[in-house]
């Protein structure tokens, strides 16, 4: 079964890095939706089936914490697996975020760390690769 993923980050570069990591991680990835703030993400979540969300915290319009609260309050979305990918370094705030049943990855991260966390949260321990064919060197 392939996973539909939503990536929420105000940086297009960071969204690309996360998407590339997922695509080379060995997970079978279906649709990848991208949103640049919490408000856009909520619209996408209401219109599409999403299996996993990767969410930044500091974003304009609607931040990641508000987005997570809204998702957890919505009976249709409450169980959505969420990985927070953020520069947030306050230990108190990280504890508070984790209490909302999310995993946490601190930026900067090695792509391997993201892969392990996603395997863990989705319950997949190994998979088939969806490696893009554009490999220029080896």
């Amino acid at each position: 079964m392939s996973l539909n993923v939503l990536i929420v980050d105000d940086s297009a570069a960071m969204r690309s890095i996360i998407q590339k990591t997922l695509q080379i991680s060995g997970l079978e990835i279906g649709h990848v939706y991208q949103a640049k703030n919490g408000e856009e993400a909520l619209v996408m979540l209401e219109e599409n089936w999403v299996d996993l969300a990767l969410v930044d915290i500091n974003m304009p319009v609607m931040d990641g914490e508000t987005l997570i609260n809204r998702v957890r309050e919505n009976p249709d979305l409450a169980e959505l697996p969420i990985v927070v990918v953020s520069t947030e370094s306050s230990e108190a705030r990280i504890v508070q975020l984790r209490s909302k049943d999310v995993e946490f990855i601190h930026k900067p991260f090695a792509p391997e760390t993201l892969r392990e966390t996603v395997f863990q949260i989705t319950g997949v321990d190994n998979g088939t690769s969806t490696l893009p064919s554009s490999n220029f060197d080896f």
Partner: peptide
């Protein structure tokens, strides 16, 4: 953004938001 997020705890303390 990442440099900023990683600098602040060292100058203001680990629990500051």
């Amino acid at each position: 953004n990442v440099i900023c997020g990683n600098t602040l705890p060292s100058i203001a303390g680990k629990n500051e938001v």
